[in-house]
Amino acid sequence: MPEGHSVHRIALQFRRDFVGHRVAASSPQGRFAAGAAELDGRRIVASTAVGKHLLLEFEGERTLHVHLGLYGAWDFAGDVTSAPTFTVADGRIGDDVRRSGLTDQLAGYRDGALSQATPEQLAAAQDAKGERNLRVGGRTTLRMSESDRELEAPEGDFPPPPVGQVRVRLLTETAVADLRGPTACEVFDPQQVERLVAKLGPDPMHDASRKAENRFVERVLRSATPIGLQLMDQSVVAGIGNIYRAELLFRARLDPHAPGRTIPEAALRRLWKDWAHLLAIGVETGQMLTRADLKTEEDYRRALAHRDARHYVYKRTGQRSLRGPGTVVMEDMGGRSLYWAPGWQTRPER
């Protein structure tokens, strides 16, 4: 399932290519016909992500709410722009990395500078580095879900015909976005949006205020529920999924089974700041880079290309812990696979 950084990247994509444009909305699949008719012909005025929820605001106080769930994805085609993602399925980065300024960005990863950036600042930084124009005569070019990847498809006139079960299509004069397989796709009024956001825990990319941090800390400290379960509860903190949970707890040296109310407040505040830091990295790079011991360009090249080189514990069952004694174990927690290193995650810093 896409975690918070992926949905923020999708929101950024809509801000670049759709906000400010009037769209033709349709439901080729037919399951969203009434909702599409309500949005058709309206201008998109804002694009926001809160946790795993995408909110596309249209003029006339209508908002398209999308939750991708396990199988959802957005496909973008036409005259769309894409900032460098550094998603390297084939393991080759080469000169593209040096031209993009990745080395400078990842220096920010090490010193925490990226965690202070807003989504707008990240977008501006990407603009300054130079985006790629992906106008390709109607060929689908970019799929965005858990990660981003460019697609191969037959060329043809614009817009390309819908392929597969497209729940909703948003079309401008030059760009098109097709949504497939979401868990939720619905039109909200302002009151429904307000109720949704009120139910969610804080998201540091949406609200980086001290008030949001306090809300997270106070919620955790009120409960005896293990911290490993609380981090997956979207009403406690929004956007964290299985990978970020495992990696955040390892980085904080927190036992996933520790009751929330037993964790020192200072440790929880560091955990919140670390989540903001890793989330910003994910939005910037398109990858869940969670290891802080990457020093050389070759380290980063390998981490961007191979999952086992960018995580401390996730999917590393039975392997030596990268910090402290012992090995990584996997167990069930709340119906999800929990990865952690008992030899390391038992003595949180005070």
Rank of each mutant, 00 (worst) to 15 (best):
H257W: 10
S27I: 00
D189W: 14
A309Q: 13
G201K: 03
K52D: 08
T174Y: 09
T85C: 05
L200F: 02
L171Q: 13
Y339T: 03
T118A: 06
F188Q: 14
D95S: 10
Q105H: 12
E218W: 03
D79Q: 10
R62F: 00
S145Y: 01
Q165A: 12
P162S: 12
K211A: 14
R98L: 06
A117N: 06
E265F: 06
F216L: 00
L278R: 12
A36L: 00
D95F: 01
S100D: 12
T225Q: 13
K273D: 08
D17K: 11
E297R: 13
A34Q: 14
E3A: 13
P161K: 14
F216M: 00
R323T: 05
E61D: 14
V329R: 06
H8W: 11
G181P: 11
L39T: 03
G101A: 09
G108F: 00
A107Q: 01
L114K: 02
L39G: 03
F158A: 05
A267H: 06
A276H: 06
R222Q: 14
L39S: 03
T63N: 08
R215S: 10
G164Q: 11
D96I: 09
V236Q: 01
P2F: 02
R261Y: 05
V19P: 09
L304I: 04
D17M: 12
T225A: 12
L102P: 00
A36H: 00
G112M: 13
A49W: 02
V50C: 10
L271I: 01
E247M: 09
A266W: 03
F58D: 01
G164Y: 11
N133C: 02
R350P: 12
V236T: 08
G108I: 00
V166I: 15
F14C: 09
V313E: 02
G343N: 08
L171E: 11
E150A: 08
R43V: 07
M144V: 08
I10W: 01
D40T: 11
Q191C: 06
S147T: 15
